[in-house]
Amino acid sequence: MTATATPTVTPSVPRRHAAPVAPRSPSWPRAAGILILAGGVMLTVATGLEVGTDVATDPAPAAAFWVLFVGSVLAQVAAMFPLALGRGDGHGAVGSSLVGKLALLGFGAFLLANHSLYLVVTYLLPTATPSVGAMAFVLGVSAVQGMLLVLGGVVIARAGVLRGAARWAILVLSLVGFALGAVVSDPSNGVLTDVMYFVSTGAQIVAGILIARATLSAAK
């Protein structure tokens, strides 16, 4: 009588299915928003020092003003790179628009030039009398800066990459900048000018928060 081997049955274990992993949200809106926010906060404090203290002659407020003012400018310029180019792949808030990319990066360049001229004319050469040509150049730089930001804001709004209020943040910020320019051009009302400076920096802070918290219409 031969023994019959009994087959061993191995119980099948149901294979676990890995939980779907949600795609990572691109980090460039957060980077751009934080830089814009930081620039706005530093500029607000610098403006407060400029309005409330003598930053031209008092060493301590002057040092704080220069650090904050220059830091705010550098933060705003740096913010244009992730806003225009995303993670460096060219897919930022303006989508594939070359015009939008050039507008935002050009705004950063003119912003740096304009604020540098402001420091030179106001604090480094306060007794110099600028020529008509020099004043026209300064006004031209300011005008081009503002128009580039308007153009960038329009392209961002049309591209629709940023959703919600963040989609309109840069355009609104640019319009506030033009309102500030209109007020500053009339030096007869110093109180209104000071108020508009803080409205402008406040608008920048709000824009930074909105962009940092923005969701995207498509992963970029």
Rank of each mutant, 00 (worst) to 15 (best):
S97G: 08
D89I: 09
G92W: 04
A113C: 01
V70Y: 06
A22I: 08
L125W: 08
G108T: 06
Y123R: 14
F69Y: 15
M42W: 02
T47H: 05
L104N: 03
T44I: 00
P20F: 03
S72D: 04
L125I: 06
A79G: 14
Y123S: 09
G146T: 10
L104R: 05
D54C: 06
T47S: 15
G108S: 10
D89W: 07
G48D: 06
F69A: 10
L68C: 10
V121T: 10
V99A: 15
G95H: 14
F69C: 00
L43R: 11
V67K: 03
Q145S: 12
L49V: 04
S142Y: 12
A78H: 11
D54G: 13
A19W: 00
F69K: 11
L124E: 13
I36E: 02
A19R: 07
F81H: 06
V55S: 05
A113M: 07
P26Q: 05
G52Q: 12
F137N: 03
L102A: 14
S142N: 14
G40M: 06
V132E: 12
V45R: 01
L105M: 13
F81G: 02
T44G: 01
A109P: 00
P20A: 09
L111G: 02
S96A: 15
E50H: 12
G40I: 04
F81D: 01
A143K: 08
V138N: 12
R24K: 14
L104P: 04
A64H: 12
A56R: 15
R15N: 02
P130W: 01
T44K: 04
W66C: 00
A78N: 11
A56I: 04
S131I: 07
G33A: 07
A103L: 06
G33D: 06
R16K: 00
I36V: 15
T122C: 01
L85E: 05
T127Q: 13
A18T: 11
V132I: 05
F65K: 05
G39I: 02
A79F: 07
V21C: 00
P20V: 11
A64S: 15
M42E: 00
G48V: 04
F110N: 03
P126Q: 12
V94F: 09
A64Y: 13
A103H: 01
S27Y: 01
Y123F: 15
D89H: 11
R16M: 01
T129F: 04
P23G: 01
R24Q: 11
G140A: 10
Y123G: 08
G52R: 13
L104V: 06
T57N: 14
V41Q: 04
A56P: 13
W28K: 00
L37N: 02
V45Q: 01
F81W: 15
G33K: 03
G40E: 01
G48P: 07
V41Y: 05
L105E: 07
A103C: 06
A62F: 09
Q76R: 12
S116C: 02
V55C: 10
A32I: 03
G40S: 07
A128T: 14
W28A: 02
G71Q: 05
M135N: 15
V120G: 00
P29H: 05
G52I: 10
L43D: 02
P29T: 09
G92C: 10
H17Y: 08
G100P: 09
V41N: 02
W66A: 14
